[in-house]
Computed example of a mutant assay.
Amino acid sequence: MAGESRPPAWAWSVKVNHVRVLVLNCGSSSVKWRLFDGEAALAGGLVERVTDHTTALRQILGEVTDVQAVGHRMVHGGLRFSAPALIDDEVVAAVTELIPLAPLHNPPNLAGVKVARELMPGIPQVAVFDTAFHRTIPPVNATYAIDAATAAEHGIVRYGFHGTSHAYVSRKTAALLGKDPAHVNVITLHLGNGASACAVKGGRSFATSMGLSPLEGLVMGTRSGDIDPAIVFHLHRVAGMPLDAIETMLNRQSGLRGLCGDNDMREVLKRREFGDASAALAFDVYTARIKQYVGAYYALLGRVDAITFTAGVGENAHEVRVAALSGLDRLGVSVERDGKGVISPPGAAVAVCVVPTDEEQEIATQTAALLA
Rank of each mutant, 00 (worst) to 15 (best):
G3E: 09
K15S: 14
V19H: 06
L22K: 10
L24T: 04
R34E: 12
R34N: 10
F36K: 13
F36E: 07
F36Y: 15
R49C: 05
T55P: 00
L57A: 05
L57T: 12
I60D: 14
G62M: 02
E63T: 07
E63V: 00
G71C: 06
G78K: 08
V92W: 03
A94C: 06
I99H: 01
L101T: 01
H105Y: 07
V113P: 04
A116Y: 03
L119R: 02
M120F: 12
A127V: 10
F129M: 07
T131M: 09
F133V: 06
I137K: 00
I146A: 02
H154T: 08
Y159T: 02
F161G: 03
F161S: 13
H162W: 12
T164H: 03
H166K: 07
A175N: 05
H183M: 10
N185V: 09
V186P: 07
H190D: 09
S196Y: 00
C198G: 12
G202A: 09
M210L: 02
L212K: 08
L212Q: 12
S213F: 04
G221I: 06
S224Y: 00
D226S: 12
I227F: 01
V232P: 02
F233T: 13
R237T: 10
A239Y: 14
A239F: 08
M241D: 08
L250N: 11
L256D: 05
R257V: 01
L259I: 12
C260Y: 08
D264L: 12
M265Q: 11
M265W: 01
R272L: 09
E273N: 13
A280G: 14
L281R: 14
F283N: 03
V285C: 03
Y286P: 15
Y286E: 10
Q292F: 08
Y297A: 12
G302V: 11
R303G: 03
V304T: 07
V304Q: 08
V304D: 02
T310E: 13
V320S: 04
R321P: 06
A323V: 07
S326P: 06
E336F: 01
K340H: 04
V342L: 08
G347V: 07
C353S: 13
V354Q: 02
V355H: 05
T367A: 13
A368Q: 06
L370P: 09
A372G: 15
